[in-house]
Design a protein around this nucleic acid. Structure first.
Lengths: 234, 234
DNA sequence: ATGCACAGCCGTCCGCCGTCGGAGGACGCC
DNA sequence: GGCGTCCTCCGACGGCGGACGGCTGTGCAT
């Protein structure tokens, strides 16, 4: 074991070994992982599966700590299998580590949504893979660096977009923004008036001004703008 | 160098060493990192800073590949410094790796938004830290496993919430959902009618039914529901 | 076959919404 | 003081929106 990389498992000797289930349709890949894992003292392979359905069966039978799951597999794919495993009663402790060749964004999203704890690419080094298994077994999560980068990029880009959209509201006065926020929650003019201690006529004026400035025709379109700019939360 | 962990830098010997700038207000922390880094052949410390302002100066002077940045620092904090560095013309190649004791969600978000490429906790092992430096220097990104876990948890939880909210729409007919989607984009009844090849009166009926079933009074409130359920994207 | 329920479609009536014009007061700026 | 901006308020008009009832067709059950 590599010194210093053991944050997830500082004393491997006095614990039960991490039980791993391999799910991949290619025999060569499985045997490769198996020899890689078997030389480690603190990790052992307890089962293998060649498709998603088998993976679910094996998970129920062997109750592993970690499932190394490929995505593209015959019959049931890895993402569906992941969903079934983590939703099975009594198998909540099982962590799924996706291991695939493709870094398609859609795969990553679906896999995480399905309940995967990690996402690694097959071009990762052996030590990275072993480290990932230990991290996931400890209940933490881990993504391949390239995936992390893209995830962050997407995260920040949508933040920037929200920032840019928020600039559309810069033409509004403070009061108009307040009114817009209430319109964004579906309030009527009268409700806005009593909420802000205004005459309903004044509320209408502010709504009207906001619509004119933002190019909205309806108050419905104002709601759309309020959501798109992030003025009102989901 | 550890075999297998070198995916980010497979052949360290035939490249220029990674230049690292240390930014931390505690002398002990800096010296600790320095001895850790200096024993590696492919990484070298080219400067040190004790606060955010110094970090920006040093980054301009030494043009490092990676800045190891603490968050809590006097004068200018690490997040502000990160923002200034990555926005400085000619310093876009500089990657910032946040290294802090606290895993507060707000810190993580702000740091990533500011342009950081990684976020590690100070309780990480030496090998993890060195690996993180190499990953970030290679242009990829990396988060501490605990951070990754929380990020994924937040990501999926909001997905699950959207899923639960979507059940509200189960009472609607297919046609009504279509109409609702268009209402959610701010379309008028006439526009919906021509969009779906309907009489405007029919569009109104569907809108009316959707409102009755969902407990909405306005079409504005329908827009709110459409966004909250995720029927229309942000 | 009859009755029933539901989805879809349409026309009509009333009310709120949105527009326009006007008007007053508070504040800051030249 | 004059000017501009913002907030507040009012009244009247036209129109879209929403409610209501009626009509058709389909599927299901008795």
């Amino acid at each position: 074991m590599i010194p210093g990389m053991s944050a997830a498992d500082p004393s491997s000797l006095d614990r039960a070994p991490i039980k791993v289930l391999l799910a991949d349709d290619e025999r060569l890949v499985r045997s490769g992982f198996k020899v890689l894992i078997d030389v480690e003292d603190d990790i052992e392979v307890v089962g293998e599966a060649t498709n998603g359905a088998e993976a679910v069966e094996q998970a129920r039978a062997t109750r592993p700590d970690v499932v190394l799951m490929d995505i593209r597999m015959p019959k049931v794919d890895g993402i569906q299998a992941t969903e079934q495993i983590v939703k099975t009663h009594g198998l909540q402790h099982v962590r799924v580590l996706i291991l695939t060749t493709y870094e398609t964004d859609a795969y990553v999203f679906e896999a995480l949504q399905a309940g995967a704890s990690g996402f690694m690419l097959k071009d990762a080094g052996p030590a990275e893979l072993l480290h990932a298994i230990r991290v996931v077994a400890a209940g933490d999560a881990l993504l391949a660096p390239r995936i992390t980068r893209r995830l962050i990029g997407q995260f920040t880009s949508q933040r920037v977009a929200a920032q840019a959209a928020e600039d559309r509201l810069s033409v509004l006065t403070q009061r108009e923004r307040e009114v817009l926020a209430l319109v964004g929650q579906g309030l009527s003019n009268d409700e806005i008036g009593s909420e802000l201690c205004l005459s309903p006529a004044t509320a209408r004026t502010h709504v009207s001004h906001a619509m004119a400035k933002l190019g909205a025709r309806d108050r419905a379109q104002l709601v759309v703008i309020a959501y798109r700019t992030g003025l009102v939360s989901p």
